[in-house]
């Protein structure tokens, strides 16, 4: 009996030791990373300073009301660019994903090439995209559009490919066994089945791109990101606060709409 208890004790000690080890390692990594970066932990306790500052300075005042028109206009442009980039990327991605999915691909090398290509697009930082494009396309909406387009293309190709592969080889083969042609299999068997999944990916990307458009705008000097930077750097905090508020409203509404569509699709 006693040896049984010892065995249970050993079991629990081992679990506890593993947990302690993980916590110690993470703790040391935390300290190491903080020192490496020059980060001071107590600033986490001063988070409320930022919020307080935000509330004090970013309250839109009388003067900032005059900026509403410009902000709304830029916000709307940014939204349009984000939607257009996502939609265009989705169309190209769908094509790439169908050709590249292991279950449908004409040749496995094609699949690998598309996989590598999408991974490349995804992992090139959006900063690099924005900068290269800015150099060639200059300061306009097209630059932001293309930067978002390339990133989204990388993401959606991968996501669509996985969705199609989840659909399963057997189902595709079963469809082909009924004598359907390649295109029939895709148009009548595959697409209706995965339409809901594809749709939710597209909606997710739109949501994401509205946010990223702000960043791209900041880097390329276009859209809502640009005017935020402009107001912020020139200490017109009231107007900058208005920009933040408008971005919140836009992103939250996009999220709500996409949730609504998601619920209608379920």
């Amino acid at each position: 009996m006693n040896s049984d208890v010892q065995q249970i004790n050993r079991f629990f000690s081992k679990k506890r030791f593993r947990l302690t080890l993980i916590i110690v390692i993470l703790g040391m990594a935390y300290v190491g990373a903080s020192i490496g970066l020059g980060f001071q932990t107590h600033s986490l306790l001063n988070v409320q300073d930022g919020i307080a500052w935000l509330i004090q300075n970013f309250i839109p005042n009388e003067a900032s009301k005059g900026y509403w028109n410009e902000i709304l206009q830029q916000l709307f442009r940014t939204f349009l660019v984000a939607v257009a980039a996502t939609t265009c990327a989705a169309i190209v991605s769908l094509f790439l994903a169908i050709v590249g999915a292991k279950t449908l691909t004409p040749a496995i090398t094609v699949s690998w090439v598309i996989r590598a290509f999408s991974s490349l697009l995804r992992n090139i930082p959006i900063v690099a995209w924005a900068m290269i494009l800015l150099f060639s396309f200059k300061q306009n909406d097209l630059t932001g559009f293309l930067a978002l387009f390339f990133m989204t293309l990388g993401f959606l190709t991968r996501a669509f490919m996985e969705t199609i592969e989840d659909f399963g080889t057997e189902k595709v083969q079963a469809l082909q066994a009924t004598g359907a042609t390649y295109l029939q299999v895709i148009a009548q068997g595959l697409l209706p089945e995965i339409a809901v999944a594809l749709m939710s990916w597209i909606l997710y990307m739109i949501e994401n791109n509205v946010r990223d458009a702000t960043l791209v705008g900041l880097l390329t000097g276009t859209g809502i990101g640009f005017i935020f930077n402009l107001y912020f750097k020139s200490l017109r905090y009231g107007a900058a606060g208005l920009v933040v508020l408008s971005v919140i409203i836009l992103v939250v509404s996009v999220e709500l709409i996409s949730n609504l569509i998601g619920r209608l699709l379920s």
């Binding site: 946010r211 990223d212 960043l215 971005v247 919140i248 992103v251 999220e255």
Partner: peptide
């Protein structure tokens, strides 16, 4: 959290 998420990291 949805409101916090809505503000881009860079801001």
């Amino acid at each position: 959290m949805a409101v916090i998420r809505a503000i881009p990291t860079v801001l």
